[in-house]
């Protein structure tokens, strides 16, 4: 391995410590927002893509990435944001989905049924992250943050967030 490859590998490792401020069990790697890490003219270039267009956590995550790299000895860091191709919940890692569930948030379904504009569509069945029941109902398509919808479990009666398809 040449020096650049070693540095890039080290940077990926460091980013495993940077958490999403709104869902702190997920790292930026779990979310799938890191598109590339390259060395360009001796600078470490991190290419990230936003989850939601208006997600206020993006600025915090960029800062977190920079801080973590600085703390670990990287000096010349450039964070580049790209919009295309657009982020999708499919890019979330499998371990990320498991961490979400353990945290009490239903992870995005792999078969995404509701990404169309049709009104009053047949609802997706979302598994309650607390008791694993599928007897759940949608309370609101919009939840506590841009990425979540609000559901309620008919069995254990607990409300929960669903990381909605995107």
């Amino acid at each position: 391995m040449d020096a650049d490859t070693i540095q890039i590998k080290a940077a990926w490792k460091i980013l495993e410590q940077v958490a999403d401020p709104e869902v702190p069990v997920l790292t930026v790697i779990d979310l799938g927002i890191i598109r590339h890490i390259d060395i360009v003219e001796h600078r470490l270039q991190i290419t990230i893509t936003p989850t939601y267009t208006g997600c206020p956590a993006m600025d915090v995550m960029s800062m977190g990435i920079r801080m973590a790299l600085l703390e670990n000895g990287f000096k010349h860091i450039e964070i580049k944001q790209v919009l295309s191709p657009a982020w999708t919940t499919d890019w979330m890692s499998e371990s990320g989905k498991q961490k979400l569930k353990a945290y009490g948030i239903a992870p995005p379904n792999t078969t995404q049924a509701v990404c169309t504009p049709q009104s009053f569509q047949q609802e997706e069945s979302i598994q309650c992250p607390l008791c694993n029941s599928y007897h759940t109902q949608l309370i609101s398509q919009f939840g506590s943050t841009a990425c979540k919808a609000l559901y309620k479990c008919d069995d254990c009666k607990e409300p929960f967030d669903y990381f909605k398809c995107h």
Binding site: Y52, T53, L83, A86, P117, Q118, S119, Q141
Partner: peptide, 18 residues
């Protein structure tokens, strides 16, 4: 790029408002 990102969110807006 901006539009293809935003259309995903607008889909939810359209569904909710309809």
């Amino acid at each position: 790029a901006i539009a293809s990102k935003a259309v995903k969110e607008v889909t939810y807006h359209l569904r909710w408002s309809s």
